[in-house]
Amino acid sequence: MPEPITGRRARRARRPRAAWLGWLFAAPAVVMYAAFVLRPLTLTVQYSFYDWNGIGASKWVGLDNYRRLFTDSELFATIVHAFELIVFFSFVPVLLGLFVAATIRGIATSRLATVARTVLFLPQVIPLVAAGIMWSWLLSSTGLANELLSAVGLGRLTRAWLGEFGTALPAVGIIGAWVLVGLCTLLLLAGMSKIDPALYEAARLDGAGPVREFFSITLPSLRQEIGVSVTVTVIAALASFDIVYIATQGGPGNSTMVPGLEIYYLAFSEREIGMASALAVALVILVLACVLPVQRLTRDGSR
């Protein structure tokens, strides 16, 4: 065991060489990241100031594309839709997950729960495209959803859920909720298993019911897990693409058009590369603006 002082001196002395070595180790990652993420990202910002159809010459238009983003009601609506999806992709799975996890906490180690772990994860494992295909079929006018409604005497509610203006976006949201609820439940359950059982026992001795127990013990201890669930699901909502592409292509009308899909259409079908890039920049900023506060609130407090 070397003397502490010698050790520290040795480390100091090695620093310059290790410095270069460190970056050498990081180099492959840095190169790939710079070439295929940072460079395109910079270009996205650059393109957003141009009017370009992707083939001919481009024209500098300054902030015009951004101006259009906020004045063109159709484009702006995509952002509004993304926020509406947060309700389904994020709030529903997290709240439902909290409720379910709190209820099954007591049986978290039973065999049923072990099976549930596997089953609830299925939607996370399959491609979102597959989820979209399954659900477009379930929600179609002759699908299972309508059949169930008719069976319980609610036949007059049946409709083509993905084909009507009022229901298409919520229907897309439900697909997202289905994908994410299992993940949230298991995340929160894992968090709950880390809570000291003594806390609950003490609460019981004080005569607390399950509701008070939930609000005074479970919820505060889960800050970090809730933060993670919210972050993951909010990103999934704002950046949604696969499900919408398969289930509705943004229709009917533009009622389910989300930024991700609009970027794709603008860039590759309408060939308004500049506008697509401006929307892309807005999306990147939007995601950061939503996620950073959540991280700050839930991470700092718990440490």
Binding site: A34, L38, R39, T42, L43, Q46, Y47, Y50, W52, N53, G54, I55, G56, A57, S58, W60, I273
Partner: peptide, 20 residues
């Protein structure tokens, strides 16, 4: 420096070199 490198890589207007 990194940022400068990246911007210089991308400073010409897009599509200007496309053949017509």
């Amino acid at each position: 420096t990194l940022a400068a490198l990246l911007t210089t890589a991308a400073c010409s207007a897009p599509g200007s070199d496309s053949d017509t």
